[in-house]
């Protein structure tokens, strides 16, 4: 059911974009919607981030799994239990760039009929690495459609990525790895019963969007053929704030673009917001130095207290009269 809802939504988005292109709604699907999507994406993420940074963190709560820095003769694990900001940064960088925590993914299996065994399962890590890094390269390569002249790093990436020189236009390595990654991530949710059980429509939807974007992109480049020069004219005119919609752009392009717009606008309100959230997770971005540095709870306010000294000062005569012990004797008149 979750799968069908998500699939239906993604197919619907693509069909709407295609229909828009075919019906000549180039202005709506080529100018207004992408522009709004970009605004919603950046604005939504900014609001999210502002919200997160405005939430006080009363105490350092990093998740750790290594020896904490303590006595000199006990060797600390600097990455698993960072003690300084730099060490926390190191752990963070490995997490963001290499998805280090996915390497800990395990799989539970019954062996010999009735013994439960756990083993490392690196499929998720590999699929996620393929998908995310290819996506980054593809997006940078797409800059050739949005800049004029095209910066050198885009040309370089394009040449490196197309080095196999298979076909005309050449097949990019990242196109293949991207589709392979997305397909694996989807297949994992279908075939692994435990993962399938916890998968919601919100888990499938972004994957279907990415798959749809990837397939329509491949279609445009290798099969259906579109007028790239006209598409570039449209994109450049957008970025020069003088939008003009050239004739004759294939509806598939509008499908591709509408899918990408929906994905962009969907990011701040969905699980994909992890792209910003990972940097602001107090369980990851803080050094575990609670025992070395005093952290004052940010929502502490000055409490009105009545100390024992004040209490005795106030009631000393009565205490002495009642024979109670006092710290300071009554002053003699």
């Amino acid at each position: 059911m979750n799968v069908l809802v998500a699939l239906g939504a993604a197919v619907g988005v693509f069909a709407a974009g295609m229909a828009g292109g075919a019906l000549g709604l180039g202005w709506l699907f080529g100018v207004v919607i992408p522009g709004l999507a970009l605004l919603v994406f950046l604005g939504g993420l900014a609001v999210k981030v502002w919200d997160w940074v405005s939430t006080p963190v009363p105490f350092r709560i990093p998740t750790t799994c290594g020896q904490q820095t303590s006595l000199d003769w006990i060797k600390p694990n600097k990455l698993e239990n960072p003690h300084t900001g730099i060490q926390a940064l190191g752990r963070m960088a490995l997490e963001v760039l290499c998805f280090r925590s996915l390497l800990r993914n395990t799989k539970a299996e019954m062996v010999q009929g009735r013994r439960l065994a756990y083993r490392t399962s690196l499929g998720l890590w590999l699929g996620a690495m393929l998908m995310h890094w290819s996506l980054l390269v593809i997006l940078i390569r797409h800059l050739r459609l949005m800049t004029n002249p095209v910066p050198a790093f885009v040309s370089f990436l394009e040449a490196a990525d197309g080095f196999l020189e298979i076909g005309l236009p050449a097949v990019f390595v990242t196109t293949v790895t991207f589709l392979a990654g997305v397909t694996y991530l989807l297949a994992r949710r279908f075939t692994n019963p435990q993962v399938r059980y916890i998968s919601l429509a919100g888990d499938y939807f972004p994957l279907f969007l990415l798959l749809g974007i990837g397939l329509s992109g491949v279609w445009m480049r290798h099969f259906g053929k579109v007028d790239i020069a006209a598409i570039k004219e449209l994109m450049l005119s957008l970025f020069h704030f003088s939008p003009a919609v050239p004739e004759g752009i294939s509806p598939v392009f509008y499908g591709h673009l509408f899918l990408a717009s929906v994905l962009l606008a969907y990011i701040p309100f969905s699980k994909i917001a992890h792209m910003a959230g990972i940097f602001l997770s107090p369980t990851r971005n803080l050094a575990n130095n609670n025992r070395a540095v005093r952290h004052v709870n940010p929502w502490d306010y000055p409490v009105k207290v009545h100390t024992y000294e004040e209490y005795e000062e106030e009631l000393r005569d009565k205490m002495v009269a009642a024979g109670l012990p006092v710290e300071k004797p009554l002053e003699k008149e």
Binding site: L38, F41, L42, L45, A46, V49, W52, V53, L143, M146, T147, N148, P149, P151, K232, E233, M235, L236, S237, F239, H240, A276, F279, L280
Partner: peptide
């Protein structure tokens, strides 16, 4: 966090300001 957000927004909008650094005035 705000510096990070600012850098991210600058990167994403590269095609917008990238043209200021040497792009043609008219596409």
């Amino acid at each position: 966090a705000l510096v990070g957000l600012g850098v991210f927004i600058l990167l994403v909008t590269f095609p917008l300001w990238g043209r200021l650094a040497g792009g043609q005035p008219v596409p």
